[in-house]
Design a protein around this nucleic acid. Structure first.
Length: 487
RNA sequence: GCCCCCAUCGUCUAGGGGUUAGGACACAGGGUUUUCAUCCCUGCAGCCGGGGUUCGAGUCCCCGUGGGGGUACCA
């Protein structure tokens, strides 16, 4: 039975890079009809905050990644937050001490640091010198009397390790790479490299997918598995996600947290689809893949071992694709908060059956011009407001000496047109206007579009006119005309 | 310092000894839409460098170079 996990630490906003590994772990578990677990690694007191745990769970749910066991849903291997598993870590630490695999260390961080500096200066590997490894009872009592609180150190094995990593291949850790390392801090909290092993072992995790920033540390973990007499899980270390400057993707590159992508209105399935392409490729090269397809196509052997640069343009392309393809009803639900956010329409109106048809119609018209739902606002404005802005791209067309002529003709034609405006009627009107004034193509169409919407791109005018009504349309044309020098 | 990982178009990638090195995003041009978007077609552009191994190396080996990570009582 395949069991994978996502084990974030609640020290900040959920990062896309972490979500990518979570996605792969999720896909692998689902593909093999196994379980995916969520575990909170909150043993760093300084940085962990409970609010981030709540936020994290909320963001993961928004993404649609669901877990079979976790802090909120429980499960047979709980608890699922490390801060609640302290007794377990101590129990196993005691076992290791009893077996001579670990010992109390009374050295202060300052003492350890000083010794390290000295060894570095002497050109030796800066490992802990093991001075507390064989303390006598009376030495220990002396330290205790001084008020020192001991940490627990693991006795490192002096041997080489070979890891068969599913993405990196065979990785050899030479003998003597690590010295005795702390597994329980003097404050009683476990250190990552220890807790992760105890948890993965007890939670029966079979496959560990994570960032390759953990690769070097794996040797410590292998030692602990060995001391436990346990078989390590299969490891897969993914290269990190980078920014355009090839540095680890961070806030200074722009949007990186799920929170932000969410606020911008990227459909979650689009974001996951994009993320799946970062370090993985489908066997047939297709790139637009639904969650179901991802689950069935995913496999570890197609994971890439080199770092990937996050391409915001490609994300936008995928996102737009999803926005266009999505069933209108579903998109509407998703878009409501973005409509409300503009302040131009209330949630009640959006749910009002009498008005819903209108708003849904508008959404359907403008969805094709948006990369994310936050972009809807730019097109929504000319349906809901008369004070919409004229975008700068419009300037050259307003400066054309044919523009006033075009607008006047449009005004007249519109005023005199008694029929309901639809595609045919509009084409009819346009045809005769173009003939009459001798202007065609974009020099004809764009001024009309600018007058009605303030923009040089957007839905067909003949779709917009019936929605805003003739009266407003006439007024908009006149308003723009008034700002132009008469030619 | 020591150790580990990585290296194909600008970007994501396919390709694992014999390929005109394939696809996607972006970009450029064309077609459709009398405009923009969508859609379709075309183009641009790549195997980090040097040595091996081999009849033959993006592909295997070694050495550089560059980038990343670790060497924590961070994760």
């Amino acid at each position: 039975m395949v069991r994978t996990r996502f084990a974030p630490s609640p020290t900040g906003q959920l990062h896309v890079g972490n979500v990518r590994t979570a996605l792969f772990a999720y896909l692998y578990a689902k593909k093999h009809k196994g379980q995916f677990l969520l575990r909170i690694e909150d043993t760093d007191l300084e940085r962990s905050e409970a609010v981030y745990t709540t936020k994290l769970i909320d963001d993961l749910k928004w993404l649609g990644l669901t877990w079979d066991e976790g802090p909120d849903v429980g499960g047979p291997c709980g608890p699922y937050a490390q801060s609640e598993r302290l007794a377990i870590y101590h129990e196993y630490a005691q076992k290791l001490i009893d077996e001579g695999r670990a010992y109390y260390c009374y050295c202060t961080p300052e003492e350890v640091e000083a010794s390290k500096q000295k060894m570095l200066a002497e050109g030796k590997p800066p490992h802990y010198d093991g001075r507390c490894r064989h303390l006598t009872r009376s030495q220990r009592e002396a330290f205790e009397r001084e008020g020192r609180k001991p940490a627990i150190r693991f006795v490192a094995y002096d041997q080489a390790y070979t890891l068969n990593d599913v993405v990196k291949g065979e990785v050899v850790f030479p003998q003597g790479m690590v010295g005795d390392f702390v597994i329980i801090r003097s404050n009683g909290l476990p250190v990552y490299n220890y807790a992760v092993v105890i948890d993965d072992y007890l939670m029966k995790i079979t496959h560990v997918l994570r960032g390759d920033d953990h690769l070097s540390n794996t040797v410590r973990q292998l030692m602990i598995y060995q001391a436990l007499g346990a078989t390590p899980p299969v490891f897969g270390h993914m290269a990190l996600v980078l920014g355009p400057d090839k540095q680890k993707l961070s806030k200074r590159h722009g949007v990186t947290s799920i929170e932000e992508f969410r606020r911008l209105g990227y459909p979650p399935e689009a974001l996951l689809n994009y993320l799946s392409l970062l370090g993985w490729s489908s066997p047939d090269g297709r790139e637009i893949l639904s969650m179901e397809e991802l689950v069935s196509l995913f496999d570890l052997d197609r994971l890439s071992s080199s770092p990937a640069v996050f391409d915001y343009d490609k994300l936008d392309w995928i996102s737009k694709h999803y926005i266009i393809q999505m069933p209108l009803e579903k998109l509407y639900e998703m878009a409501i908060p973005f409509f409300v956010e503009t302040g131009w329409v209330s949630e009640e109106e959006l749910h009002d059956p009498a008005k819903k048809t209108f708003y849904m119609g508008v959404l359907d018209l403008i969805r094709g011009y948006c990369h994310r739902l936050a972009d809807l606002k730019d097109h929504l404005v000319y349906f809901l407001r008369e004070d919409f802005p004229i975008e700068t791209e419009a300037t050259p067309f307003l400066a054309l000496d044919t523009t006033p002529k075009v607008l006047r003709a449009f005004y007249e034609a519109l005023k005199n047109e008694s029929r309901e405006i639809d595609e045919l009627v509009f084409r009819d009107m346009a045809m005769s206007m173009m003939k009459e004034i001798g202007v065609k193509g974009k020099n004809f169409f764009l001024p009309l579009r600018i007058a009605i919407t303030g923009r040089v791109s957007g839905p067909e005018i003949y779709f917009i006119l019936p929605l805003i009504g003739k009266e407003k349309a006439l007024k908009r044309v006149q308003t723009l005309l008034d700002t132009l020098p008469q030619g």
